[in-house]
Design a protein around this nucleic acid. Structure first.
Lengths: 199, 199
DNA sequence: CGGGCTTTGCAACAAAAGTTGCGTTAAGGT
DNA sequence: ACCTTAACGCAACTTTTGTTGCAAAGCCCG
């Protein structure tokens, strides 16, 4: 839960963990998951190669740990006043995140890691489960306001709003911009309003 | 275009290419992209390691070649008579493909490869571009029948129908079944009918 | 059916990735 | 302040991955 090296969480141990985590994120941003090697992370962090292998095991462990860290960070759930506005904002949040020069490459690297190694996959899945829980508020509010039909499955609406973005990014390789995000958000709203996501 | 070893397409060259392609698919099915090594493919195909390195370069080249081969295969575009039926069928096609014990792992491996190496990514993107072109017929027919508004962007509808499936499979790690596919297809239809995808 | 040229196999090599044993360092409790 | 022991650094080693030079094999053209 709390990551590698928990028996003795004090000074030195904590410092090396921090150094390695930081180095991992930097390497991911620069070279992606494919280019993430234990040797490079060790060199960059100033921690010895052997230590990294012993505490994290491999690149997989490094990514999972970094991802767990990222999952802890809070994020702003949109509240624009209207359901369609919120869903659009949600989609834009995803779009701008990947467009960002800093977060974008790291986020993409996380997905790349998750697609092919179980440890990172599990970490990413819990990350998204949390995000969906948070985002569900958007839909619940809309139902209360009467904008969306009662019994609407909130997670399903959220998925519909963001899925096309991930689909383009990682499957078809098409670029995404604000217009794409807006369309995805509006389409999710339209489908929900039509009752496509009621249980 | 036609793959490695095109200068002398005759007997032996063709045989080794076929053997390697087959071995690549088998390895992908068994161990996924992560477990795909040139050594294993060489051993399985009976072709020498050096030859594989020379003609395909790396695991990336192997996947790209196999993917190009898979892209050539035709697939049945649904024609159920109704737009919603077609979109549901489209989503089910994706769902059943990944559920299949043979195709599923290979398809997942293709995505895993594409997410992190440019060669496989390019091959996958052209693969999907072709599929989208074919699937556009579904929407075009619906517009002609008056089921969907004129000016509906066909590719956008198709994306909406299948994106949630890929999103669950590769991002959130949620299982997909027939019900999920049906909901995705119906939601895409509802959004399109509401005019969310008109230009 | 023979000679030139491509492709393959082979072995030896080079580089990168991962492991192990052991001595040293420094937390954390007393 | 001191002692126990987890965690680290270091060097040597093994395994895996990728490369190179050269000779043998076989396709394709005349």
């Amino acid at each position: 839960m709390t990551g590698p090296g928990t028996v003795r969480p004090g000074g030195r141990t904590a410092r090396t963990r921090e150094a390695v985590r930081e180095a991992t994120l930097a390497e991911l941003a620069e070279h992606g998951y494919q280019g993430l090697t234990v040797d490079n992370v060790a060199a960059r962090s100033g921690v010895h190669k052997t230590t990294v292998y012993r505490r994290w095991g491999s690149a997989e462990g490094l990514v999972a740990d970094a991802l767990e860290l990222a999952a802890a960070e809070p994020w702003p759930v949109p509240d624009t006043g209207s359901a369609e506005g919120d869903l659009r904002a949600l989609a834009r949040l995803v779009q701008s995140g990947f467009a960002d020069a800093e977060q974008g490459p790291v986020a993409a690297a996380f997905v790349a890691a998750a697609v092919q190694n179980p440890g990172a996959a599990k970490a990413l899945h819990t990350f998204f489960a949390r995000r969906h829980e948070d985002a569900a508020a958007v839909v619940d509010r809309a139902v209360e306001r009467g904008e969306l039909p009662a019994g609407t499955d909130s997670a399903e609406v959220v998925r519909a709003a963001v899925a096309p973005l991930y689909y383009r990014l990682f499957i078809t390789g098409e670029r995404i911009d604000e217009a794409v995000a807006d369309r995805a958000g509006s389409a999710a709203f339209a489908a929900a309003r039509a009752g496509a996501f009621t249980r």
